[in-house]
Amino acid sequence: MFSNTSEIIEILGTIAFAISGTFSAMQRKLDVFGVLIIAFVTSVGGGTIRDLLIGDTPVAWMRDVQVCLVILVTSVAAIIFKTYIRKLKVTLFLFDSLGLGLFTVVGLQKGINFGLNPGICIALGTITGCFGGITRDILLNTIPLIFRREIYATVCIFGGVVYLLLLYFEINTDISKFIVIALIVITRIIVVQKRLSFPRMRY
């Protein structure tokens, strides 16, 4: 079904963000159609912007209907089994963190595959990881996390730098991906638990 590790990571990221979007929409008491739309834009928003920026069109989800099916099935399953998921104490925050780590790596690798500058690769990883959540929050009339005090995009940038360093030192690509995914998720959890943040700008 999947030809390589990158595809598996992308599908896992899609599932994580679809659940994140679904629960965010249900918290706002949207109808079923609204929930599905939010799940969709959360899952593909970052990747769509990334692909448009690098001219890789039609964008990924338009070329592969499997992505849309994964989002639909995941969102419907999350709606049906929401009570059980809550009993397992799996939170919106956890799925958002997982999606952030998984999609950051997807964006980084795509930039590398296109032979782009390392800094641009990091930017693409950050965009892929963050912009689905930004779109979700805007549609739900919430200030996106990236614009609040909570450290969010910086975690993606940090992960991107580590990923490029691992590749520079010739660490296996698949191992590097999983290291960076774990690093981003763990760092984000620590940041939130310790309530670390940047100071507010004042004038």
Rank of each mutant, 00 (worst) to 15 (best):
K194C: 07
I11G: 02
C68N: 12
V44H: 07
I146W: 04
R149C: 05
L108G: 08
R200H: 05
T14V: 14
K110P: 02
I11N: 01
I190N: 01
N4E: 06
V41T: 04
L164E: 06
S97D: 03
L116S: 07
L164P: 11
T91S: 15
I181S: 09
V90M: 14
G55Q: 11
W61N: 06
R136N: 00
F147M: 03
V191P: 01
A18W: 00
L100T: 04
I181L: 15
I11M: 14
I8K: 12
T104H: 00
T83E: 12
Q109M: 13
T142C: 08
F23G: 03
F147P: 02
C156Q: 05
A123I: 13
W61Q: 06
F103Q: 05
T14D: 03
Q66D: 00
I157D: 07
V161F: 09
Q193H: 15
G45Q: 07
K82Q: 08
L145C: 05
G129Y: 00
C121M: 08
F178Q: 06
I190A: 05
I157P: 13
F131G: 01
I9L: 13
L167K: 15
Y84H: 13
N141F: 15
I15V: 15
L69Q: 10
T126R: 09
L30A: 11
L139T: 07
R148Q: 09
V70P: 03
Q109L: 14
T154K: 07
Q27Y: 13
S3L: 13
N117T: 10
L166H: 10
I138H: 04
M201W: 13
V192R: 06
L88M: 15
I189H: 02
A60V: 09
S75A: 15
F2Y: 14
A153L: 09
I37E: 02
